[in-house]
């Protein structure tokens, strides 16, 4: 069987097993499903409240209420995909190292990073994805302009780039567990850094905002993860001139680079792993 197909099949098995596991503890699944949705709705309530008082985020930025909700829908989809596919696994990686469970992963004839990253799928976050999708579609309907098929293809492509960026940053930090032993604080750090990207990058304005925006675009590319795909859907902000296309083009480079760095650090971490007594 060709390699990619084999990996896809392994992933399908992981996803299926996780679903069976989640369905075994159905009440628990339902509670987690509802609780993550409640956080989402609470945040939406906050945003609705903000737009009760202001017509747009920033003067002349084009981020009105429904434009921003397209953005938030996108943010929800990207974050929930990253959470659903990788979060539990990144959490678990520290445990694998502390208890020496990584030994059993290393001996398997599958790429270690693949196995470690995708072993568990957290289906309870799927609700957030659906809400994000629904919100984006609903907001587009309110705006009254439907994107063309080409735009949708571009949107999905950049959405996936966003997921890859968040994944790479997450596992970059997770890999440090090999050297640090414990890295719970680092996970909080990931969460806080990623939450910088939950708003349109135009809000980072002024003497401190500009360097801040630059840093989180070019050094740690969290701002492009959600901003770039969302812009394709919003008519008024969609890249048109060549200059406006520079950011989407850069995003592809940033995705490749940040993933490569993550991969390299992960391999380095595996080389430094010395197992635990077992």
């Amino acid at each position: 069987m060709p390699q990619p197909l084999r990996y896809l099949q392994i992933f399908a098995t992981f996803a299926r097993n996780s679903l069976i596991r989640d369905m075994t503890f159905r009440a628990n699944f339902l509670i987690e499903f509802i609780s993550s949705l409640s956080w989402v709705f609470m945040n939406l309530g906050f945003y609705i409240l903000i737009f009760h008082y202001t017509p747009s985020l920033g003067r002349d930025t084009g981020w009105g209420k429904y434009e921003f909700f397209v953005f938030t829908g996108t943010a929800l989809m990207i974050n929930s995909l990253a959470g659903m596919l990788f979060m539990t696994n990144a959490d678990n990686f520290g445990e694998l190292i502390r208890r020496g469970g990584l030994d059993f992963v290393l001996v398997k004839p599958v790429d270690t990073q693949f196995l470690v990253s995708l072993q568990r799928v957290d289906w309870s976050s799927s609700g957030n994805f659906l809400v994000g999708l629904g919100l984006a579609v609903y907001s587009l309907r309110c705006l009254g302009v439907w994107p063309s098929p080409v735009t949708i293809v571009l949107y999905v492509f950049y959405l996936l780039c966003g997921v890859v960026i968040l994944y790479s940053l997450m596992f970059l930090l997770a890999a440090t567990a090999v050297w640090l032993g414990r890295n719970e604080t680092l996970f909080d750090f990931w969460f806080y850094i990623v939450s910088f990207g939950r708003y349109p990058m135009e809000i980072y304005e002024g003497r401190f905002g500009r360097p801040f925006r630059w840093f989180f675009t070019f050094i740690i590319p969290v701002l492009v993860a959600i901003n770039v795909p969302s812009r394709f859907l919003v008519q008024s902000i969609r890249p048109q001139s060549l200059e406006e296309w520079l950011l989407p083009l850069y995003t592809i480079a940033a995705t490749v680079i940040v993933f490569a760095v993550c991969r390299a650090v992960f391999q380095l971490a595996l080389h430094s792993y010395r197992s635990a007594s077992s």
Partner: peptide, 13 residues
């Protein structure tokens, strides 16, 4: 940090 910039944007508009 995000709150400072978010509200800055809200108030500017």
């Amino acid at each position: 940090i995000t709150q400072i910039f978010l509200w800055g944007a809200v108030f500017s508009a």
